[in-house]
Design a protein around this nucleic acid. Structure first.
Lengths: 229, 229
DNA sequence: TGTCAAATGTCAGTGGCTGTCATTAATCTC
DNA sequence: GAGATTAATGACAGCCACTGACATTTGACA
């Protein structure tokens, strides 16, 4: 009885159970800790059988990263869409920055962003989750490296440059992640600014002398005072 | 009755059990696969109770990385021993290269290197192991970043440069790992040469144009023919 | 040789995860 | 709209990693 063919009742129910499971899982993970949350607790909160949980998620871990996967997928897509006249690192950099603006609403359609952010912080402090996260990031890196290689018309298996470029970029992002995960007060704008700054710092880090000068240090950015989230 | 006080019978027995467990574990992992090997199989092979295994290793994973841990520890130590007049990246680079020469014998004292190498390859193709490996590498990176920061007299928590430098370095090493893990025939000498080449390629990758030129490609190295392992 | 402590074995239990099969509920067909 | 079809779910049984508690063995040492 609606203009566009809305998915049937069955499909809608499925979506609701999945959403409910995901939300309950993240809520429990972030309040009690990942390890201390059993799958039974999650399913009891949603009132489904344990078996049902494993029909929607490959495991606890899979639920924990369901939202992060959205971000990863979007990033890979964003890289693909960059104009070919950009250098690889420009493309990567612009891809994150551009995506950063729209990622929030995409996430919000599944779970509250605030919950997602709490989950990110938890990942940093839970060994099992951190391990899983790094592996997933590594996978994204591999995917992106292939995209870069194609852009540049190179064979990713013989020319190391695409993978090296992505590895360098991923390294910087990882430094950001850690930095962000540890500081309570780091809004989107500041994070964005720091990312740019860190990326720009890579060149000098490799070539110039460090020692006394504080060319890429944090303080100038933070000293500008709080910005909105 | 010996000149140097050799550890008592008790200590020697412990060492033997641990060695036996480790060897059996790696042997089974590399032949049947990590996931398809149960702890019971390992303990049966050594003829101890399952409980004993968990007294020596925190879990299956811990056994899988017992040897790799040696390499990690040695690398961190090697970085610490680099003269302070080297730039951070020089120090990191020289640390790997120097350590590479002596790591073989250190490993051999615990298990056959050939077994260790097989285990490395398995890590690359087993998601659970790859995740664990990346997390452990990340930990080493953090440790090394602190060492670098101290060398340069910087605060690792406010100045991003130590972590960025280590991240870049770690990224290149990771590219090497994957490259090595996938090719059957890549001896120590070739790996060493490739590492140097990749590290040298980081600068150009960031600044220069890529496209047609194959400045850092593999083929020249491989074309030099096989070298010893 | 007897005492102490460390190493090991035994056993019971928890939690993640899977296969199987019966049951329920949405969709399709006539 | 009643019945056939098919997908989602529930209910179990079972495997495996891992842990705690307690009993047993076995070097160490006086």
């Amino acid at each position: 009885m609606n203009t566009v063919t809305r998915p049937g009742l069955r499909e809608r129910k499925k979506q609701r159970t999945r959403d409910a499971l995901l939300q309950a899982a993240l809520e429990l993970f972030t309040t009690q800790g990942y390890e201390h949350t059993t799958v039974d607790e999650i399913t009891e909160a949603v009132d489904v059988s344990q078996r049902t949980f494993f029909r929607y998620f490959a495991g606890k871990e899979d639920a924990a990263f369901a939202v992060q996967d959205i971000a990863h997928t979007r990033f890979a897509a964003a890289v693909r869409e960059r104009p070919v006249d950009e250098t690889p690192l420009e493309a990567l950099r612009n891809a994150v920055l551009k995506d950063w603006d729209t990622i929030a609403e995409a996430v919000e359609q599944v779970v509250p962003i605030e919950l997602y952010l709490r989950m990110c912080r938890l990942t940093e402090s839970t060994p099992a989750l951190l391990a899983a996260h790094l592996r997933r990031s590594d996978e994204v890196g591999e995917e992106v490296a292939r995209v870069i290689a194609e852009r540049e018309g190179l064979d990713v298996d013989t020319d190391p440059r695409p993978r090296v470029a992505v590895a360098v970029f991923a390294g910087v992002i990882r430094v950001m992640e850690r930095r962000w995960g540890l500081s309570e007060d780091l809004g989107a704008t500041e994070t964005r600014a720091l990312t740019v700054r860190y990326l720009d710092a890579v060149g000098p880090v490799l070539t110039e002398k460090w020692h006394a000068d504080r060319g890429a240090a944090d303080t100038p950015v933070n000293a500008r005072g709080p910005q909105n989230t």
